[in-house]
């Protein structure tokens, strides 16, 4: 199909609609507002619902309602708004409601700024809301993946009856790149648990409460089983030049693109460097990293944060080889030359 030059944020909306999403509940925030704006434009035209809520709190609970009714539905925001949604996200996971949440991460903490950041890794991947839940988390690194991974997020959310998050940053959301859109999804999984406004609803209940400790434990164990299955089946990552690499760079989202160029430049200078890019931040490609740790001499993790994903890399490497870290914060995006300089310094130490 022909390609379209389009912003990542708009590609999310078109991808969502192609995936059968028919409800969007939003609240404006830079740099995610184009998602709500495109949704306001397209959803009503395709027979869907767009609603600008009174807050991110309201929007996550509108999503809870729409997901209870079994339709594919979504919301999008940026870091401070995602913080507000956290209670609802925990409820969604507890009540096993599939839905998609997009986080176009910005600089924090507090109001921070609107520049690109990856400082939400902990709040999305490790929790942020209360209780023992996980979010399927996808990290696109281009406009094409903003479409593709949004569509995948709906599929995985339904497969696991769990919220899925598309986590990107201001650059990936704001930049335009060519996107080839796939055909619309036309068949959807059954949701016998969903409320339909019909007599059989009397046998259905959407809830996350269970006052009996044994009962709640059983429920949480059931969630953990789903998470274990996702860890077996859904890990996605991309490798570049890792076959003979001595040092492996690890980065996701916009950083992975910088690292791709870094690998090329390093190789031109005779350094055997490769790249591992997690596409799913949860489930994390831990197993692959553990394997690689047996045959490389070091990893270097680069993030637009104080070092959050690096914790997961270190857990997977388990001390076998050094794991170096380089992070920029506050919305500063390092240049390829800068990363290469740090890499060479580390290698020489």
């Amino acid at each position: 199909m022909a390609k379209q030059l389009i912003k990542g944020n708009e590609a999310v909306v078109k991808g969502a609609i192609l995936a059968g999403c028919r409800a969007f509940f939003g609240y404006p925030i830079t740099p995610a507002s184009e998602i709500a704006e495109a949704a306001a434009y397209y959803f009503p035209q395709v027979g869907g619902v767009f609603l600008q809520a009174e807050s991110e709190i309201a929007s996550i609970y509108m999503l809870y309602g729409a997901a209870s009714a079994g339709i594919r539905a979504m919301t999008a925001s940026s870091s401070p708004g995602i913080s507000l949604k956290m209670e609802g996200i925990s409820y969604l996971a507890g009540a096993e409601l599939p839905c998609v949440i997009v986080d176009i991460v910005r600089g924090g903490p507090g109001l921070g700024n609107i520049a690109p950041s990856q400082g939400d890794y902990h709040q999305i991947v490790k929790g942020g809301g209360h209780g023992e839940y996980k979010l399927i988390t996808l990290a696109p690194n281009c406009a094409q993946e903003m479409c593709d991974l949004t569509m995948l997020a709906f599929e995985l959310a339904d497969k696991y009856r769990n919220p899925a998050v598309v986590m990107a940053d201001g650059f990936i959301g704001q930049m335009m790149e060519p996107v080839e859109f796939p055909q619309p999804v036309s068949s959807f999984p059954d949701k016998p648990w969903a409320l339909r406004g019909e007599d059989a609803d009397q046998f259905r209940l959407i809830t996350s409460i269970d006052l009996e400790p044994e009962g709640l434990e059983r429920h949480v164990l059931h969630l953990q089983e789903k998470y274990a299955q996702a860890e077996r089946e859904e890990v996605r990552f991309e490798e570049y030049q890792t076959e003979d690499a001595e040092v492996i760079l690890v980065g996701y989202g916009i950083v992975s693109r910088l690292l791709h160029s870094t690998v090329d430049e390093a190789r031109a200078k005779g350094l055997r460097v490769g790249l591992l890019r997690p596409i799913t931040l949860w489930p994390f490609p831990s197993r692959r990293i553990t394997e690689l740790a047996t045959r490389v001499s070091a990893f270097m993790v680069v993030e637009l944060s104080n070092g959050q994903m690096v914790e997961d890399v270190r857990l997977a490497v388990a001390g076998k080889v050094p794991v170096w870290f380089y992070g920029r914060m506050g919305g500063v995006v390092p240049s390829v030359e800068e990363i290469l300089r740090v890499l060479r310094q580390q290698i020489e130490v």
Binding site: I57, G197, L205, T207, S208
Partner: peptide, 30 residues
């Protein structure tokens, strides 16, 4: 929801009108 023989949703503190909004928009006949 122990009692009413109909579709039941249990929600967070204070958010029922937002959840109701999401359900009604998805299922206008309900």
């Amino acid at each position: 929801y122990y009692y009413f023989r109909c579709g039941n949703v249990q929600v967070a503190h204070g958010r029922a009108p937002a959840v109701a909004t999401g359900i009604k928009r998805a299922l206008p006949h309900s």
